[in-house]
Design a protein around this nucleic acid. Structure first.
Lengths: 208, 208
DNA sequence: GCAATTTTGTGATTTAATTGACAGACTTTT
DNA sequence: AAAAGTCTGTCAATTAAATCACAAAATTGC
């Protein structure tokens, strides 16, 4: 177990391990070797062992890994040991879609939804009432919100991000096509740039 | 201009170049050096030059790059020179959100939406009527669909993917939390694993 | 039109990521 | 309880990606 800085490429593989281990657990499999896992998950066995060893020696020679233990360990590494409070800004279709995802089972607790559209304000999604955007800052402070799901239009994105930064939100899950400029280095921004993803498809499709 | 295989890391940067060049174009800027672009986009100047040179020498010494030309070139590289026909499978909030995105301006033309929910079937989103899922295969063949946006639940994902592969769809934009197994190597699968993205956030948040 | 400046394109170097290899620890079999 | 087999953890080697450095080509300023 090295304790240097873990690279982003490793971190981005962790959720996949977590998903596959959950599947194995659900199937009642309680033991797996890096070789078997490599065949299911599609990474090399060597990479799996190397990845896991960044965080600790979870396996045992001659045996492999205990699926439940490893699942729990990776859950801990991924920060799933405690709940996070989340808000959704922009309660259109995308915001509503995110509200309906079962992120709660992983500890992501939705505490507020916000929009500027009078037709949406007052509606309830999963028991959460959509409130006007001018309530956002106040509510974030009161509830100590950890993560904001940013689903506004392009035009509002940066302004909302600025407001979120000021009221102590510690991460922004950014679904807008904007690359946000955040002054506070400690605020985490995770982009889901759908158009970038779609253009990657068209790159590969173009001469087929 | 090398014509070996372009690495995935380079390809995934191309849409970002495209977005920033569009912004510059809209601002009326018609000339930019790799150094200036690096300050805006956050890659090194060297990387920008190296990336672009995978596809051709688009710049000029002492001048830099012509913004409009470069924007158009990258559009061509990304396959935006021709339209793609798309369908959405799963017309819930996420499917509807995707239908309402303006992917059309980039040439992604929505030709069908499908769902199994009787309450959704018959509704129209952006002029597209939601049809029952059993019409999917037939329609894909008739319309020669290029890309399917897969927004079903976890349980249906693999079955739908199998059907899509059989009816000639050439790419699947996968929003389900499933890693699809596709026998046809030529079918492109682009995953948008939201839960993986969210867990990356919690990784960084966990001990803050 | 000449000198100074800018800036690309590209080969060389450095850094990062992946894969290979194997000693040693543990398990299983007999 | 010994022998045979399994499989990790880790170091070494390889491959890939990013950065550096600079000659050559073009531009700009005088």
């Amino acid at each position: 177990m090295t304790n240097g800085k873990i690279s982003m490429t490793v971190i981005r593989r962790l959720p996949k391990y977590h998903r596959y281990l959950k599947d194995l657990l659900d199937k009642g499999i309680n033991r797996i070797s890096s070789k078997e896992l490599s065949e299911i998950i599609g990474f090399t066995a060597s990479q799996i062992r190397q990845d896991l060893n960044n965080f600790g020696g979870f396996g045992q020679q001659g045996y492999g890994y205990n699926v439940e233990d490893l699942f729990n360990e990776i859950g801990l590494i991924l920060g799933l040991s405690r709940p996070y409070k989340t808000v959704i800004i922009g309660a259109g279709n995308l915001g509503q879609a995110l509200a309906n995802y079962d992120f709660e089972v992983h500890g992501f607790q939705l505490v507020g939804m916000y929009d500027v559209d009078e037709n949406l304000i007052g509606r309830k999604i999963k028991g959460i009432e959509i409130k006007p955007s001018n309530r956002l800052v106040e509510d974030c402070v009161i509830h100590n919100v950890d993560i904001a799901y940013l689903c506004t239009n392009r035009e509002s994105a940066q302004n909302v991000a600025n407001a979120l930064t000021k009221c102590g939100v510690r991460a922004i899950w950014n679904f807008t096509p904007v690359d946000l400029k955040i002054s506070d280095e400690s605020v985490i921004v995770e982009d889901v740039h759908l158009i970038d993803s779609l253009l990657t498809i068209s790159y590969f499709l173009k001469d087929r």
